[in-house]
């Protein structure tokens, strides 16, 4: 595979990129911290042997999306897979207090991410198809107290990805929507860990398999699929009472 990853310097993106590099996939990294990009590129080059290119790309600067993906196209000689793991996170109470932060989070996690995906979609379908793998969240499965705003943006993102899948699969574009439950990364550090929380290294192989098979939705760690099935079907009266 020839893969462009937005968000490979940290957390789940880092773990996934390592898996890909180790099996010989060609990688190109996009991110906003140039120093972190360089370091990750070195690490991935050591794992896989091949050079790993990088380009600056910030989800808050949509004008740079086309140039960043064009740079990836040039470096890789075209790509067939785009992965987006980058996103913002903040606890609900913090977002309620700080409306600028919540505007920024909604903007990045929904509007800008979709703008980036649109740019990637045009290039992938233009090149004859490929895979677009985007990290959404189980937070988008149902309106819940701890993730009212974050979850709303992720719900919108998941919906968008489902729509893409329906519309473009026949044209060769496979969409993979990853729905992580709780994964122990820097993003979730400091939060209380629920049961079935996962390690990035453990979930990366599952995501990679979903990409290889073009599965439209994948829950990681796997038990979250069943947890969310229950939560989606809980009556409102109960959801209103419980804290999750």
């Amino acid at each position: 595979m020839k893969v462009v990853i937005l968000g490979a310097t940290r957390g789940m993106g880092r773990a996934l990129a390592r898996k890909m590099a180790a099996r010989g996939d060609r990688l190109f990294l996009l991110g906003r911290d140039r120093n972190a990009l360089d370091r990750s590129a070195q690490d991935l080059k050591a794992l896989g042997g091949a050079e790993v290119g990088t380009s600056h790309c910030d989800l808050e600067q949509p004008d740079g999306f086309a140039a960043a993906l064009a740079a990836a196209e040039t470096a890789l000689g075209g790509f067939d897979t785009v992965v987006v793991t980058a996103a913002l996170f903040a606890p609900q109470d913090e977002l309620e207090r700080d409306h600028l932060l919540s505007r920024r989070l909604l903007d990045v996690n929904f509007t800008r991410t979709i703008e980036f995906c649109e740019e990637a979609r045009r290039r992938l379908t233009g090149g004859g198809g490929g895979t677009l793998c985007v990290f959404s969240s189980v937070a988008g499965e149902r309106g819940r107290k701890p993730v009212v705003l974050y979850g709303a943006a992720k719900a919108g993102l998941s919906h968008y990805l489902e729509g893409l899948d329906h519309k473009f699969r026949s044209m060769g574009l496979k969409t993979v929507c990853v729905k992580p439950g709780f994964v122990k990364t820097d993003m979730t550090a400091g939060l209380d860990r629920p049961p079935f929380s996962g390690e990035p290294e453990k979930i990366a192989p599952r995501v990679l398999r979903a990409i290889d098979r073009g599965r439209p939705v994948v829950y990681v760690p796997p038990p979250w699929r069943w947890i969310m099935l229950v939560i989606r079907n809980l009556p409102r009266a109960i959801m209103r009472k419980v804290g999750f």
């Binding site: 370091r39 990750s40 070195q42 690490d43 080059k45 050591a46 794992l47 820097d186």
Partner: peptide, 9 residues
């Protein structure tokens, strides 16, 4: 343990 990158080989 999460600062686990190889920076040069």
């Amino acid at each position: 343990t999460r600062a686990d990158q190889i920076l040069l080989f």
